[in-house]
Design a binder for these strands. Structure first.
Lengths: 189, 189
DNA sequence: TACGGTAGAGAACGATCGTTCTCCGCGCAA
DNA sequence: TTGCGCGGAGAACGATCGTTCTCTACCGTA
């Protein structure tokens, strides 16, 4: 059982890296097998289809995203700081050499038309993120509309950074978020 | 020649609709042939590869985008109105029943890892749009940074609307853009 | 009427995909 | 030791892809 857990994690981790780097459809199950060091038979006993593996990879990415946001917010003491920490997290991410855009957005563009399960998994992650932003905005007295605006900035920054190939969008989105927060919530200082 | 132009247009239009609805990799050249009513031999005499057809489709989409923005800005008399008209255009687009997100973002997520030509075509379209926004922002006395912020809102709205499946993002992005413009440029009234 | 060249329809080809199956070797109960 | 079941390696399968090739019908021209 512990062994099975490890094999499953190896497959998910290997598939995640391959899918993110080359795209899902460009990676065959043979490549996953080789990278994970787990036989095809075992992979198909853990996941009934490639689609299911993709969903598992997206869930793994969700955990990584949540952990990254939490880590970037560690030193933040207020909800406002935690909101802005999102964009600091994006900035650091965009500067990584293997940054290829948001895996959820990429996978949605690639597979949402042919796989409802994938589309649902992506939508769920975005909904969860919007909820997180919504809680923080509520803490500082902002409206749900303001939360939606901040979330749109985060999405736009990821898309822009991926296509342009530069990390500038994080800085721009952070500045825009600051303006929106200042305009909606009277500064306490 | 006029005939060739027409055949080329038929192929591009048919491919555009198929690619946008089902995704590029999910559509075979046989499906393009059937939908366009043009033989494979002729298609491959017009485009040397599927990749080249994809680039031609993206260029066609660029023209449609530019025309849509121009049409939505028809009644605008000021640069500020033309900027906000972008979000009205997005709002109307998001409400169309066959809206499946931004074709450039989708195609980038699907093929940028495997086709440099596609990645370049997408980047060029986004750069062109950012330039358009930049000109309008400059007209009202805003900085390039403000233009980047407005462009990020537009990108984020498209991504959010595509994944969530609702048109709300256009309204939110428009309100955010209004706040940003008001904060950066003193109102004249 | 005879003919050269073009274009259409779709068969054919080689590659690759997701998925399944076969074979083999190893660990364990009696 | 002998038999048994499980898992690993990867061959095999059927489908599908992008691309090319073959064959045929038809066109204007002499």
């Amino acid at each position: 059982m512990g062994e099975a857990e490890t094999a499953r994690e190896q497959v998910v981790r290997a598939a995640d890296e391959l899918f993110y780097t080359r795209g899902v459809q460009a990676v065959g199950m043979d490549a996953v097998r080789t990278a994970a060091g787990v036989s095809l038979k075992r992979i198909y006993s853990l996941f009934s289809s490639k689609d299911e593996l993709v969903v598992a990879v997206l869930r793994h990415r969700t955990q990584m995203w949540d952990a990254g946001i939490a880590s970037a917010s560690e030193n933040a003491t207020t909800a406002r700081e935690r909101l802005l920490a999102i964009f600091d997290f994006l900035d650091a991410w965009f500067r990584e050499s293997d940054f290829h855009g948001c895996a959820f957005i990429n996978t949605h563009g690639e597979l949402s038309a042919s796989s409802q399960a994938v589309a649902d998994a992506v939508r769920e992650q975005k909904r969860s993120f919007q909820e997180y932003v919504g809680r923080l905005v509520d803490e500082i007295g902002g409206t749900p509309d303001l939360a939606a605006q901040v979330a749109i900035l985060a999405e736009g920054a990821q898309t822009t950074a991926a296509i342009a190939g530069t990390p500038d969008a994080a800085r721009h989105a952070r500045a825009a978020a600051t303006t929106l927060l200042d305009a909606a919530v009277p500064a306490h200082v």
